[in-house]
Simulated scan of single mutants.
Amino acid sequence: MNLGFGEAIVILIVGLLIFGPSKLPSLGRAAGKTIHEFRRGMREIMEDTDKGKQ
């Protein structure tokens, strides 16, 4: 699922209205860290299952 430019603008505007401009950068950082940790965990699980098959 890819977001287009218009959808990204709408999400940004809604985020600004709900959280305000001072909270938005910290929420973005937290979301980025969460996604990074999730991907790292998934990668480790995939590596472990590949090792178990050998």
Results as ranks from 00 to 15, higher is better:
15 G>C: 13
50 D>R: 15
34 T>I: 08
20 G>A: 05
30 A>W: 06
52 G>S: 07
54 Q>Y: 10
45 I>E: 04
49 T>G: 00
43 R>W: 14
9 I>R: 08
49 T>L: 12
8 A>L: 15
6 G>V: 05
38 F>E: 05
18 I>D: 03
50 D>A: 12
5 F>W: 11
33 K>M: 11
19 F>P: 00
28 G>P: 01
28 G>W: 04
25 P>F: 01
14 V>Y: 03
15 G>R: 01
45 I>T: 03
40 R>I: 07
50 D>V: 05
36 H>P: 00
2 N>R: 15
32 G>S: 11
24 L>D: 00
45 I>V: 14
14 V>S: 08
21 P>H: 08
54 Q>H: 06
44 E>W: 08
52 G>N: 07
26 S>E: 15
12 L>D: 12
18 I>P: 00
54 Q>D: 15
22 S>C: 02
33 K>S: 09
51 K>Q: 09
13 I>E: 12
30 A>M: 07
19 F>Y: 10
2 N>S: 15
45 I>W: 02
50 D>Y: 06
51 K>N: 10
19 F>K: 00
35 I>K: 06
7 E>Q: 13
52 G>D: 12
53 K>W: 03
15 G>P: 01
3 L>I: 04
4 G>D: 15
31 A>H: 04
18 I>T: 08
12 L>P: 01
43 R>D: 11
9 I>V: 14
35 I>H: 04
48 D>P: 00
1 M>A: 13
6 G>R: 14
9 I>T: 08
7 E>K: 10
52 G>E: 15
30 A>T: 14
53 K>Q: 13
9 I>Y: 05
34 T>K: 05
7 E>Y: 02
35 I>N: 02
11 I>M: 06
4 G>W: 02
19 F>Q: 00
5 F>A: 10
41 G>C: 07
21 P>Y: 12
17 L>Q: 02
30 A>E: 13
16 L>R: 03
17 L>D: 03
1 M>V: 06
29 R>Y: 06
53 K>P: 03
31 A>T: 06
47 E>T: 01
29 R>T: 07
51 K>S: 10
25 P>S: 05
40 R>V: 11
5 F>S: 14
11 I>S: 06
10 V>T: 08
50 D>H: 12
40 R>S: 09
40 R>D: 14
10 V>F: 11
42 M>I: 07
18 I>Q: 02
22 S>N: 07
51 K>L: 11
38 F>G: 05
46 M>P: 02
24 L>A: 11
52 G>T: 04
31 A>K: 09
38 F>Q: 07
51 K>D: 09
10 V>A: 09
15 G>M: 05
23 K>S: 12
23 K>F: 02
12 L>F: 14
28 G>Y: 01
25 P>W: 01
36 H>D: 15
4 G>Q: 08
40 R>H: 12
48 D>C: 01
29 R>N: 09
6 G>T: 03
47 E>L: 12
34 T>N: 10
34 T>M: 10
38 F>P: 01
43 R>Q: 14
44 E>V: 08
52 G>P: 00
42 M>H: 12
9 I>Q: 09
4 G>P: 03
15 G>A: 11
17 L>E: 06
10 V>L: 11
54 Q>G: 14
1 M>T: 07
32 G>V: 04
48 D>I: 09
